[in-house]
């Protein structure tokens, strides 16, 4: 059955957005990412104008991340304190990022810089996560489970411990200076704003490797953080660009809210390393896809410019 979308000004078979929502919602509940890096290009592929695709996806993520955060919160896997610190940083980073884009556009070849940053970040994050989780899976097999993991006291570790405002994050079982999540949140916020993505795939590794949070808490906390980011983005997109298609968002969220629940349940059955290696594989697949897009001759050399 087809439905006409009032803002996208196109008609779509309802099974497409519901199915896409289900698949991306599943990834969201499983890995704590918004899934915009998958959803937006898929929507464009199915004939949704690019500006509407990105804006509507953020509206849909509000629903999926609410559903996912709720599912993870029920089992105590959301570190609200850490989430709020990251959000504060992310908000500040977003402001800087928007200015950085203006600067890049003023310098010319902004698209090249943005695209390259995106591919390199995806590639580095994907490869690092993949290798690291593979190694820790091997290590777990050889070591006995009872042996406590050795805490490496690196120079970076000592520096972080010397920072003021040391705070205990109970849920994550870590102690950091309050400045650390704020600065890291800001860093992800800057990159996310420049690349025009939600930043979940960056935030997850940052929480795992830099904040040393347990993977299951990372997923729940990331979703909590994404929820607020996407509320803000949805409102701005609806208010300034009029590009949120409410009906498309409803069709997507029918699938994604259910998908997020299923993902959260499924995620509990997997080990942290298994989750990490799966996410790393997806990030690498997306990287390869973008590399192909960049190198193969496109069928259309012209596309609709964003905005009005």
């Amino acid at each position: 059955m087809y439905l006409y979308l009032p803002v996208a000004l196109t008609s779509i078979n309802i099974l497409i957005p519901v199915g896409l929502g289900l698949a991306v919602g599943l990834l969201s509940g499983l890995f704590g990412v918004g899934g915009g890096f998958l959803m937006t290009p898929l929507l464009i592929m199915f004939g949704i104008p690019s500006t509407v695709a990105a804006a509507t996806d953020s509206n849909q993520i509000v629903a999926a991340s609410t559903s996912g955060t709720y599912a993870h919160w029920k089992v105590g896997n959301v570190d609200f304190k850490m989430g709020i610190y990251l959000l504060v940083g992310g908000f500040l980073g977003g402001l800087v990022g928007v200015q950085a884009i203006k600067l890049l556009h003023a310098m010319g070849n902004a698209d090249f810089v943005i695209k390259m940053t995106y591919v390199i970040m995806l590639g580095v994050v994907g490869v690092y996560m993949f290798i690291e989780s593979l190694q820790s899976m091997k290590k777990k097999k050889t070591e006995s489970a009872a042996a406590p993991a050795e805490q490496k006291e690196s120079a970076v570790g000592r520096f972080l411990a010397s920072l003021p405002l040391q705070t205990r994050f109970e849920k994550s079982g870590v102690t950091h200076s309050a400045l650390v999540p704020i600065v890291l949140g800001a860093f992800v916020g800057v990159l996310a704003a420049i690349m025009g993505v939600g930043g979940g795939f960056l935030m997850v590794p940052v929480m795992v490797y830099m904040l040393r949070m347990p993977m299951h808490v990372v997923v729940g906390t990331s979703l909590f953080q994404i929820l607020f980011t996407c509320i803000e983005v949805t409102f701005l997109q609806a208010y300034t660009n009029h590009s949120v298609d409410f009906l498309l968002a409803v069709l997507l969220l029918v699938g994604s809210t259910v998908g997020a629940q299923v993902g959260a349940v499924f995620g509990r059955k997997l080990k942290g390393e298994q989750l990490k290696i799966l996410l790393a594989s997806i990030v690498l697949i997306v990287t390869v896809k973008i590399v192909f897009e960049l190198t193969l001759t496109p069928s259309l050399l012209i596309s609709q410019a964003g905005g009005h």
Binding site: Q60, A63, T66, S67, T234, Q237, A238, V244
Partner: peptide
């Protein structure tokens, strides 16, 4: 509504999404 009453439309879109997320939860 999306073009003439954008703020309300934005709040409505967010409200429905939050409601649906909690509802399904």
């Amino acid at each position: 509504m999306a073009s003439n009453n954008a703020a309300f439309y934005g709040f409505l879109s967010i409200g429905i999404a939050l409601g649906a997320g909690f509802g399904v939860g």
